[in-house]
Amino acid sequence: MREEGYISPRQAAVLLWFAVLPTAILFLPALLALRSRQDAWLAVVVASVAASVVALVVYLLAQRFPHYTLFQYCELILGPVIGKMMAFIFVLAFFLLDAVVIREFSEFLVTAVMPETPALFFSLSIVAVAVYAARNGLEVIARCTEFILPLMVTFVAIVILFATPEMMPRNILPIMENGLRPVLGGALVAWSFLGQIFILATYGAFVNPPRALGTSLFSGLLGIAFFLSLATMGTILVFGSSQAARLTFAAYNLARVVALGQFLERIEVLFLAIWVGGVFIKITLNLYVVALGLATVTGLKEYRSLVASLGALNVAVSNLLYRNITEIRQDLLLLEPGWTLTWQLILPLFLLIMAWLRGKRRTGA
């Protein structure tokens, strides 16, 4: 099966931003401060270079199989049985990723904003809207980003600009005081977020024109690296690495320090509104990908009938994954890097090598 309609290369790149940035900006600066101390921003740079390998693998696969999704060319490369098994692994990986994002969303709102409200209420609310959007297709999801993106860019610029008086350059010095090892440790943590650009392999078949997919991949990765580096460096400059490492939601705390006399205060409310919009796009895109992949694996001609059921199952699984925000942080630090390295790099690289060895390629849909 395939989606109806196409998106532009620019929309594909922006979707990549929203596939990574909403949760990465919220959680990553504090986690990197814990792992890499004042070199946290450098860990983002190293992870971005490593993520370019994923971008290259996705691009090479897309060139061999234009107009085919990841789930379709798994079968073309590995055959009907093993190929479907591999495709299902990717479906399961995106499903678990979406469940984690849903839980991160609800835990943030409960921890930082409304502690008396059950987390399940927030999960059900965001997924109900995501189900509606996912059923309307990729074009609708891409158009939603065009409204939220200018708000996000403007807000980040305002926060960094007005937080400048609180920044102390000595907080990022000395650079690489403890050598390369802490930087690499932080880069591995950052990888679990940046590697998510692999999602473009699932909807790259709908980018028009197909030859512009490389531009979408690398411009998307460049934008992600820029915003993450900016947010991480801003956090370290304002709070210092020791204090930043103790913050659960460093970017949210960074927005809270912004004040311009009596004129501009409490802009964390705007952060909250824009962040919720960004997470909505991320959850919706992942839900769409899971439904599309499962429909492909099972041979259905229509993915929309699966969306509501998968959304409900996502909420149930997200509620079972963790007990609290501490477990989420531990998972992001210890488990996610190895798991994401497996399915976002090793398995795609295996597909590319097998396609090359077996001489598999297609020139059209």
Results as ranks from 00 to 15, higher is better:
246 R>N: 13
204 G>H: 12
164 T>S: 12
127 V>N: 05
224 I>Q: 03
138 L>C: 07
159 V>F: 07
205 A>E: 10
77 I>K: 00
89 I>S: 03
213 L>S: 09
102 I>K: 01
296 T>I: 12
335 L>C: 05
54 V>I: 13
295 A>E: 12
224 I>N: 02
105 F>T: 03
13 A>G: 15
256 R>C: 05
151 L>M: 14
253 N>P: 01
344 Q>Y: 14
224 I>R: 02
306 L>R: 09
51 A>V: 05
172 I>F: 10
180 L>P: 06
164 T>I: 13
217 L>T: 09
11 Q>F: 00
209 P>K: 13
259 A>W: 06
341 L>P: 02
281 I>Y: 08
160 I>Y: 08
220 G>P: 05
306 L>M: 06
131 V>N: 11
146 E>S: 15
193 F>A: 01
70 L>F: 09
295 A>K: 12
56 L>R: 04
219 S>I: 00
357 L>C: 13
97 L>C: 07
177 E>S: 12
46 V>F: 09
99 A>G: 05
248 T>H: 12
349 L>K: 07
268 E>Y: 12
330 Q>T: 02
360 K>W: 08
218 F>K: 09
151 L>K: 07
253 N>V: 03
307 V>M: 07
182 P>W: 09
74 C>Q: 08
113 V>Q: 06
267 I>V: 14
36 S>A: 15
120 L>G: 08
319 N>A: 14
73 Y>P: 08
216 S>G: 11
322 Y>P: 02
27 F>C: 01
177 E>Y: 13
258 V>T: 06
220 G>A: 05
189 V>N: 00
150 P>G: 04
88 F>H: 06
181 R>T: 11
89 I>W: 13
